[in-house]
Simulated assay, not measured.
Amino acid sequence: MAAPVIGLSTYREQAAWGVWQQPADLLPTQYADAVTATGGLPVLLPPVTGVGAADEVVARLDALVVTGGADVDPARYGAEPHPRTAGWRPDRDAWETALLDAAASVGLPVLGVCRGMQLMAVHAGGALDQHTPDLVGHEEHSPGGDAFGAVAVRTASGSRLAGLVGEVLEVRCHHHQSVRDHPGYTGVAHADDGTLEAMEAPGERFCLAVQWHPETAADVGLLAGLVRAASSYAADRA
C-alpha cells in the first residue's frame, strides 16, 4: 500500500535565505522528518483563500496535522488581547479553521500540535488562557527564546493518547497559552501544575491534540499513531 499523505499546515512569515528576503511559507523540518520516519508522506499546506479550497485539499489527504506557531486571534473566542498575546495571523487562523471543518465533514484523522491544540479548542467553541504563567506562577512551559521546556505529563488511563505514549512521560513544550474550555473534547493529559496538555474527541475517529511538540522527540508514538490511522482511512476510502 502507498504511504498515506499527511498534510501539515505551515507558517507564512518574512524569511531570509541566500540572497532572498521575502514572505515565505515554511515549517520546521522536524515535522516532515517525523512523518516520513513513521511511514507517512508529508505535504505542506500554506494558507489558501477561496471558497471550497479546504475541501479540495482535504479530499487529497489521508490525515491532517495542525502545527505549532503564533497565538490564535483572541477575537475568535470573544476576548481582548492579553499584553503578552501577539503576532496572531488571521489568514492562518481562517485557513486552519476551514481545514478542520473540511476534515470533520469526512472523518479525516487529525492531530493538533501546540497552537494546533489551541485552535482546535477555539474551533469547537472553547477559549484559551492567554498567558499560562499568570495561572501557574512559572514559565517552565515556555522558558523563552528558541528553548523548549521539559514538562512531566500524566495521561488519562484508557485514553487513545495513553495507548500511544504511555501513562507518564516528559515532553518538550513551548507554549505561553493554554486551553481553558474544550467543548466536545475530553482532557486526557495534564502537567503537574494542572495545565491541560492534551485532549481528544470521543469515538473511533483519530482526533487528538497535544500542547507539546512530538516532532522534536525521539519517541514519535503520536505521529506513528496518526500515520496508522491515516493508512486505515486511505484503505477504507479506497
Rank of each mutant, 00 (worst) to 15 (best):
V113R: 00
A94T: 13
T67L: 10
E139V: 12
D129A: 15
T85I: 07
V48D: 03
C114N: 05
G144F: 03
L61Y: 08
A121M: 02
S157N: 15
D146G: 15
V48C: 11
A53I: 10
V106M: 04
T49Q: 15
G144E: 01
Q118L: 08
L111D: 02
L61E: 05
D91L: 11
T67H: 09
D129G: 13
F148T: 14
V122E: 05
L111P: 02
A98I: 00
A156L: 12
P109W: 02
C114D: 06
W88C: 02
A59H: 12
G78D: 01
Q130I: 06
V110L: 05
G69H: 05
L119V: 06
L100A: 04
D73E: 09
G107K: 06
V66F: 01
A156K: 10
P81Q: 09
E140V: 14
L164G: 07
D73R: 01
G78M: 07
A75L: 10
A53T: 12
R89K: 13
A121L: 06
G50Y: 03
E140Y: 14
D93K: 06
T132P: 08
T85V: 09
D62H: 06
H82R: 08
D55H: 12
H138P: 09
P74Y: 08
R76K: 07
V57T: 12
T67I: 10
A104W: 03
A121H: 07
T155I: 10
V48N: 01
P81E: 08
H131M: 12
G158P: 07
A103I: 03
G78V: 00
Y77C: 02
P74V: 08
G107M: 08
